[in-house]
Each structure stands twice: as C-alpha cells, then as structure tokens.
Amino acid sequence: MADDAATDTAVDEAPEVATDEEREALLSVFSAELGEAVVAHEIKPGLGLWIRVATEAWPAAAEVAAKAADCGWFDFLSAIDWLPSPYGRYEDSSLDVPFPPPMPDRSAAVPGYTGGDTRLQVLASAARMGTSLRVLLKADVPDDDPVVGTWIRTFAGAAWHERETAEMFGIRFGGNADLRNMYLPTEFEGHPLRKEFPLLARVVKPWPGIVDVEPMPGGGDDEDEATEGGEES
C-alpha cells in the first residue's frame, strides 16, 4: 500500500507543475489581448485560474476566451453577491427578532479571489475542450445600475445563463433583450439569490436540524477534536 501511495503522489505532482505553466500561459494571453482591462488575477497551481476584468471589457473577455485563449467551450455564467446576509444563517431566527433586520453596511461586502469594488460580481467560466484547463472570469457589476455586457454574441449558450442570472440577482445584460424569468413565475417579486431576500419559512421557524452542528454532549472540546473514520457520533 505504501508503494501505491508513493506512486500516486509522484503522478499527482508531475502534471501539477505543468498545468501551472499552462495557466500562466493562458493568463498571458488575456493580458496581451485585454491589456489594462485585466484588473486582477489569481492562480492556484493545478486547481484554477481566476481573472477579473473591467466591467466594460466583460464581452471582450468572452471573445478572448473563445478565440485567442482557445477556451471555446462555454461552461456557465452566474454572479456572486458579496454582501453578508442580514439574516446570518438563520440560527436565532424567530418572530422575536425584528423583521426585516437592518441591512449590513455596504462596506461589509468583502469579495473573494481577485478582489473587487462592488457588491455584485458576475462570474463565468470557459474551458478548453480535451483538457482540464478552464478560466474563471469575474467582473464588477456597478452598484447603482447593475448592467454588464452580454456574452451571447460569443457563446450562444450564455443566453439562458444570463436569463437565470438576471432573475436571481437582478443584473441586466446589455444587448440581451430576452431576459424573461427562467425559473420563477412572472409575478414573482424579488431576486432570490440576493442576500437580502429572506427565506420566510426560516424566519418563522428556526431550522430544527441546527443541533447537527452543536458540540456533542459530554464530547469534550468541540472544534479541535478530530475523529477517526467510521467513528462519527
């Protein structure tokens, strides 16, 4: 068994260095094509490449991904709301807590990899067919007027994803006229994946399964304790 494990790690490490170079090369393509519009980037060796482009360069980034970078396989397009949820994780939700709770301050929105200046960010991915290489693209969405350019001129498949994102986040895509609701009835109000959208059932009734993440009675110190396999509970 020890032999197997040793060869495993050897196999794992060899391509890790190689793919890292591949991702560097991929990044340099974007930098060369988009120039200043590549605002920030992050490479996790062997795991992923994140690039944040300027808002105006969002459609151009798709074009670069499909043509120059040879990542022509459309993966997905979505968004992230970086504001913390005013409801937390609904741990202490009950009717006693004032509803709706005060919205967290705008400055509480802390973006993840590659940073960002706005609350909402669009996130998309494209891949190179036949490889494990894919590029994750991000762009800021202006706070006051959430509009970014559309990807449908490059990737036909983005149409549905933009409809979904528009419905879930209230982000509009300039150039994509068909932003009907993808999932919810037309009468539905609100954008569910925005953090301020409440899950009303949880506000009324706290999650009974919350005990799952409480320390076991008499289990000693909670977090640092590690359990061996098969001995959970």
Partner: peptide, 24 residues
C-alpha cells in the same frame, strides 16, 4: 480495491476555510 481506512482525519464540526473552488 486497496485496503486501508475509509476516512481521513477531519474535525467533527466541518468548517471550510475561506476561499473559492470550482470542481467539475
């Protein structure tokens, strides 16, 4: 099928460190 354990050492309460990951 190799022999061996089926569970690595993980904390009882799962807290995932800050970061982003995309696995397909």
């Amino acid at each position: 099928m190799p022999a061996g354990p089926i569970m690595a050492k993980v904390p009882r309460i799962i807290k995932v460190p800050e970061g982003e990951a995309y696995v397909v």
